[in-house]
């Protein structure tokens, strides 16, 4: 069974990278949105330092939303979803593997770029790795609950906007805890306290709930 899950994971990472420039588009979008803040608010350092870390999280959430539409829609259209249903592994774990592949192919690079971008937003360099780590955990949470949104809207033409409105209410807790953790890190507080732990708890919960709910929705899509 593990072999089956690894094969889904490897195939999806390959597909995520193979699709023309791989992760360039979402990363470009992410950096672009981060760039908008100073342009909108002016170069005043204190202002940007206050708004910087939270913006990294909002931009991260939006970039993940962009990548969710093709997660299951492609499989439903070309009937490879049926293969996942007939595979030698439960659909819940196959959905988890697809989420993990998206996290590896796009989530981690985004977290890395977020950490680097935090330097441009006047946050102290020491905070950058912690912010990047927080973003990595947050991306896992966003993608996990995004699995459900992608599965629900898989049968819908141009389902991207629908996924956004379905999933945004669930993004509230990770955004709250993640932005707070990033702000605490840039304020130099102890790295893995309070907000970060709550972020981790919330993302772990989504990592369990997302694939199960997504698998239930996918079975309905294939019915």
């Amino acid at each position: 069974m593990i072999r089956a899950l690894m094969s889904v994971y490897r195939r999806d990472v390959a597909l995520a990278w193979a699709g023309g420039g791989g992760a360039a588009a979402p990363l470009g979008f992410y950096v672009g949105v981060v760039l908008l803040l100073p342009l909108a608010m002016g170069p005043e350092r204190a202002l940007i330092a206050a708004a910087g870390p939270p913006l990294l999280w909002v931009a991260g959430a939006l970039s993940v939303l962009m990548t969710l539409e093709r997660l299951f829609q492609a499989d439903l259209e070309d009937a490879s979803l049926d293969q996942l249903l007939l595979a030698a592994a439960p659909l819940e774990l196959a959905a988890f593997a697809k989420g993990a592949a998206l996290w590896t192919a796009l989530g981690l690079p985004m977290a890395l770029v977020g950490g680097i971008a935090s330097l441009t937003l006047q946050t102290p360099p020491a905070a950058a790795p912690i912010i990047a780590l927080g973003l990595a955990v947050g991306m896992a949470g966003f993608i996990s609950i995004g699995l459900l949104g992608a599965a629900l809207a898989a049968g819908v033409r141009r389902g991207g906007v629908l996924i956004a409105v379905l999933v945004l209410p669930f993004f509230a807790p990770p955004i709250i805890f993640g932005a707070a953790a990033a702000a605490a890190a840039s304020a130099g507080e102890a790295p893995f306290e309070g907000a970060f732990q709550l972020l981790g708890a919330c993302c772990l919960f989504y990592a369990a709930l997302g694939p199960i709910a997504a698998a239930a929705a996918l079975r309905l899509q294939a019915d």
């Binding site: 459900l148 379905l166 209410p169 807790p173 919330c202 919960f205 309905l220």
Partner: peptide, 18 residues
């Protein structure tokens, strides 16, 4: 129905985080 159930499970979490 699936979306509503997942939403219901998340209401306390959203309430707590807010």
């Amino acid at each position: 129905a699936i979306l509503c159930l997942v939403g219901l499970i998340n209401l306390p979490i959203i309430r707590f985080s807010v």
